[in-house]
Amino acid sequence: MKRWTPMLVSLLWSICAVAYDDGRPNTPEDGFYWQPDKSGTGFALDVLGIERVFGAGYLYTRAGQPVFVTFGGPLQAIPGGWRVTGDLVRTENGQCLGNTTNCPYRAPTAAIVGQISLDFTAPNVVRVLAQTQADGVIAFDLVRQSTGTIGESLLGEWDALVDQAPAQGVYFLGEKLQIRAFDRFTISGRGEVHTYSGCVTFAEGRRDCSTLAVDGSSVVESGQQHFRIAVKAPDGKIARVYDFRRAVASGALTRSFDGDAYDCAREYTNADTCVAAKQPIRFVAYRSASRAYAETGAGTQ
């Protein structure tokens, strides 16, 4: 059997990605969006199913005064994502923070100060284009970081590609991981432990699982984070282990991650034992569906 060249594999993967796109975008995620390297400004977005988005922004004027803005609009499918457009509304003179004696309720005054458009290029990445009367056209990108721990950003569906050339004589292995559940608990003297569960699915956006399960854990000890996901057969034997501790060192995962994979060949039931015995193989994974879809199946993939 002839081996596929890396160029051919890359071409086929690109064709699959284009075929998947086909106007079927991932469901946007709720949460706080900001620029990781420029904290202090951003948006809180509430995604109402696959119908509408409501957003509130914590922004500032050129003089440094805080500005509260809101916006909303219907979700419109575009190739590779979703788009929301609407009026940008500035509100002021509303209720203060305090008791009813010092801060009785008063309705805020509102004025339209411009228009805003949000393009979700991934379930947790948004491109913002705003046009205001004061500042003209402004464009910037925001990312939804995990509202809890870095580990929560693993929830979702991922296309994993493994370069197996050094170990197997073939150039890649591809599988689709859906990480559907996340939990955390504390072990005395060790730190916080995160656990994951899910499965390997058959195709893009499919909820039915193959016989392969996905589970894993991470342990935070003395500030060191360690993440591993194992793919297991029904008998508990491990087929592969994905180890991506280096990839998450700089922050929550967004559209992709990479690290070391280990071909366990169903010889082990313990991930750490397999990692200690096998040689690492490079891998990369791309997000193909949102956390909301992996957890509940709601919305599109």
Results as ranks from 00 to 15, higher is better:
residue 129 L to R: 07
residue 147 T to Q: 14
residue 98 G to T: 06
residue 142 L to E: 04
residue 58 Y to K: 11
residue 144 R to H: 09
residue 138 I to C: 06
residue 155 L to D: 00
residue 63 A to C: 01
residue 125 V to L: 15
residue 123 P to Y: 01
residue 152 E to D: 15
residue 118 L to K: 00
residue 59 L to H: 09
residue 77 A to G: 00
residue 93 N to R: 12
residue 76 Q to K: 14
residue 85 T to G: 08
residue 110 A to C: 04
residue 66 P to H: 04
residue 99 N to R: 08
residue 97 L to Q: 14
residue 60 Y to L: 10
residue 111 A to H: 06
residue 158 W to D: 00
residue 108 P to H: 08
residue 90 R to G: 05
residue 170 V to Y: 04
residue 87 D to H: 07
residue 121 T to H: 07
residue 148 G to Y: 10
residue 121 T to P: 04
residue 69 V to F: 02
residue 115 Q to M: 05
residue 64 G to S: 13
residue 141 D to Y: 02
residue 101 T to K: 10
residue 139 A to M: 11
residue 144 R to F: 06
residue 162 V to M: 07
residue 73 G to M: 06
residue 82 W to G: 00
residue 97 L to V: 14
residue 83 R to D: 03
residue 121 T to K: 09
residue 85 T to A: 14
residue 72 G to I: 07
residue 141 D to F: 03
residue 116 I to A: 05
residue 59 L to N: 13
residue 132 T to A: 02
residue 148 G to F: 12
residue 100 T to N: 10
residue 144 R to S: 11
residue 77 A to Y: 02
residue 82 W to L: 04
residue 139 A to H: 09
residue 145 Q to K: 06
residue 78 I to A: 11
residue 137 V to H: 08
residue 129 L to G: 02
residue 113 V to H: 04
residue 150 I to K: 05
residue 80 G to Y: 09
residue 164 Q to V: 15
residue 103 C to S: 13
